[in-house]
């Protein structure tokens, strides 16, 4: 809760490096962990692939085979990590994910953990092939898939134990940039709830996921009287009752995500929960409009260009205060 939030400038780290470092530690004891990469790396991965030559394989730039080989290994009892750039992992290999992870795991244990790096527009200047604005929607629609969208590296680190304990297919979407942490490393993260109420407030509540939680936090710190902020990180297995309890007191809900809006992303999840409870607060959705981004620029520039930056959200909030 409030006391656990560290908003001061803290060490910036990439989620992937922290996750892989933690996994590296676990691989010493857990002999069934197997790491596959589609020719994608990270500084932390270098020592893993050197130390565990028998349990690391680079399948090449071949995401379809990445999923299929991961499935075969999982079928032989391994807990598998399949690592690639997020849009290629989820969209090049979508049908392999559907057939061999979503369908198959309804019949058998398939512990394949997809690690996609480059959620949203974290590969900002690389252009639309590297932007990943559809993954939440398309992975949410698959039954049996767990979808983890962390906002910081503390969550990423703590999720390693979950990947070993929960023997189900998962899609883990990591931001590509080094970011400060939001959560306290010594504190708990409740993956069964799937969300965390970072700030309590009155009337207005921001509901965000991934990198957008950093933006939301910055905004919330500037608004008086205090507004609420909820970080949603489990997008397919959230405790809907608890989330509704947390948001029902607010008059205005503003969802914030790096994804297309009105397309089945986190905004749709919130809208569904409201509908299901016959609740009708004002619901505003911050995300990308229905078009691809060909303008080159960094994250702030692209936010401004699409009317979803800090200033735009502040203005939106002021209209409801």
């Amino acid at each position: 809760m409030m006391s656990e939030i560290l908003t001061s400038i803290s060490a910036r780290k990439t989620m992937r490096d922290v996750f892989i470092d933690q996994l590296y530690e676990r691989m010493h004891e857990e002999k069934k962990l197997f790491f596959l990469s589609a020719d994608f790396g990270s500084p932390a991965l270098d020592k893993l692939r050197k130390k565990f030559k028998d349990r690391f394989i680079n399948v090449g730039i071949a995401e379809q085979n990445l999923i299929n080989v991961a499935t075969g290994l999982a079928k032989e009892g391994f807990d598998v990590y399949a690592y690639a750039i997020a849009p290629f992992l989820t969209m090049r290999a979508y049908e392999q994910i559907r057939v061999n992870l979503a369908l198959f795991s309804q019949l058998e244990t398939v512990n394949v953990n997809l690690i996609g790096v480059g959620a949203g527009i974290s590969y900002d200047v690389a252009g639309p092939t590297h932007h990943c604005l559809e993954d939440i929607a398309i992975m949410r629609v698959l039954p049996n898939m767990i979808l983890f969208s962390p906002s910081d590296w503390v969550q990423a680190k703590k999720f390693v134990d979950y990947t070993i304990q929960v023997k189900k297919p998962k899609y883990i979407r990591f931001d590509g940039k080094p970011l400060p942490h939001i959560y306290d490393e010594a504190g708990p993260v409740d993956f069964s709830d799937g969300f965390s109420e970072l700030r309590e407030g009155k009337k207005i509540c921001l509901i965000s996921t991934g990198y957008m939680t950093h933006v939301a936090l910055k905004i919330a710190e500037q608004i008086e009287p205090a507004i609420g902020l909820i970080d949603v990180f489990m997008l397919n297995s959230i405790d809907e009752k608890k989330l509704f309890s947390a948001i029902k007191k607010y008059d205005v809900l503003i969802t914030m995500e790096e994804g297309f809006v009105n397309k089945g992303g986190m905004d749709s999840l919130v809208a569904y929960i409201l509908d299901d409870n016959c609740a009708s607060p004002v619901l505003r959705r911050i995300g990308f409009p229905e078009k691809y981004i060909f303008s080159v620029g960094n994250r702030d520039f692209l936010y401004q260009l699409n009317g979803i930056g800090e200033e735009a959200v502040m203005e939106l909030i002021q209209g409801y205060i």
Binding site: N65, G72, L73
Partner: peptide, 20 residues
């Protein structure tokens, strides 16, 4: 052993099993 019908997937899964 597997989910079938979507062609072109069995061999890759078989590779993973053979490796395992």
């Amino acid at each position: 052993e597997t989910i079938n019908g979507s062609l072109g997937q069995g061999l890759g899964v078989g590779c993973g099993m053979a490796l395992g």
